[in-house]
Design a protein around this nucleic acid. Structure first.
Lengths: 197, 197
DNA sequence: GTCTATATGGAGATAGAC
DNA sequence: GTCTATCTCCATATAGAC
């Protein structure tokens, strides 16, 4: 509605895309302005500094995660939800092999040197981990087991994105997501009271 | 011996440390010169460009990996070697939680945008994966299983480094390395002809 | 609110004395 | 081979007209 919000939205969207593809340091405000079809100086009405733009991009990623998890919450069982999360990586394998996971690569870059920004970035993982941990809990695992399994799952997804990106090989992601799906199945079978949400 | 090599060595060592701590983009040649106790201009006698320095850092990491794997090769069984690899991450957990895995964070950064440099960086993972795959093969797995397991292992180690770095939590690395060690034990037990190198 | 023009600083890279 | 001084470019950021 408000044209102000529309431009701000275009800026964060353009920045999110460019940061994913080229990294934050390699992305110039001129790049962002061009993709958002705004003059360079126009950015500063919406964002005082480049770091403020990075923060907006991070917030946007947090929203993406929250929206995804809400969608997954509609599935009937925790096992189905966890497998659906894994499946998101399988579906995004081509773009992740090209540019890495948008969350992981952002966190890794923002963690270097910048104090305040890295704090915001860490929220991306606390959300994912808390949700996964909750699912494992609902599936009947103890709190400790749920925590360990959630950490393993999210780490594996982040790691395969990084490795596949380094190798430029999207099939690696497919291999690992199949492995993780199998692991989740095995866990369900091992459980006594297997997964009634 | 040659004082030239000594300075070149000091430069790559300083660059490797700084790139790990602050990232490649955030590291200036002035930083490197200062840490290596050389004047800024002196760098250009050894490295024509900043990218050439990045390449030297990457080569250095490749050497580190090769030396590590050679050391692990002296262990009696493939299971012992794989568990020892995991243990390296457990031992390095404090520094990895602070700055991320030196290999993974370097690859992620160099993969963004730079064509030629990312190729060199990918060698870091091809070495690690080939070695791990060989160990799983020696442990009695089929080629396909060995490939899958190697990818899972290296991904998990990379992923936990990334997540622990984002959270600033070295205990996360400890949790995951314990999990992986347990997984390797389970694999051995599942195998019929368990692991005679 | 939006745009143009410009200031400022910093980082990579070079020239050239020694 | 080594060091000092400097150049140039470019990216962030600002000033100020409209």
């Amino acid at each position: 509605m408000n044209p102000t919000h529309s431009k701000r939205e275009r800026l964060t969207a353009a920045a999110a895309t460019l940061v994913h593809q080229k990294g934050f340091s390699n992305t110039t405000l001129a790049d962002v302005a061009e993709m958002a079809k705004l003059p360079l100086g126009g950015i500063y009405y919406y964002f005082k500094t480049k770091d403020a733009l990075a923060e907006a991009v991070t917030e946007r990623r947090v929203s993406d995660i929250d929206a995804l998890l809400e969608k997954l919450d509609r599935l009937p069982t925790p096992q189905a939800r966890l497998k659906a999360l894994v499946n998101v990586w399988a579906e995004d394998r081509e773009i992740d092999a090209l540019y890495g996971c948008p969350i992981g690569s952002l966190c890794y870059e923002l963690a270097k040197g910048r104090g305040p920004l890295s704090t915001v970035a860490s929220r991306l993982f606390t959300h994912l981990l808390a949700w996964s941990e909750a699912q494992f809990g609902l599936a009947g695992f103890t709190r400790k087991q749920a925590k360990t399994h959630a950490l393993h799952l999210i780490s594996a997804l982040q790691g395969i994105s990084l490795v596949a990106n380094a190798l430029g090989d999207s099939d690696a992601i497919l291999s690992e997501t199949r492995f993780l799906t199998g692991w989740l199945d095995t866990l369900s079978r091992t459980q006594k009271n297997g997964g009634h949400a």
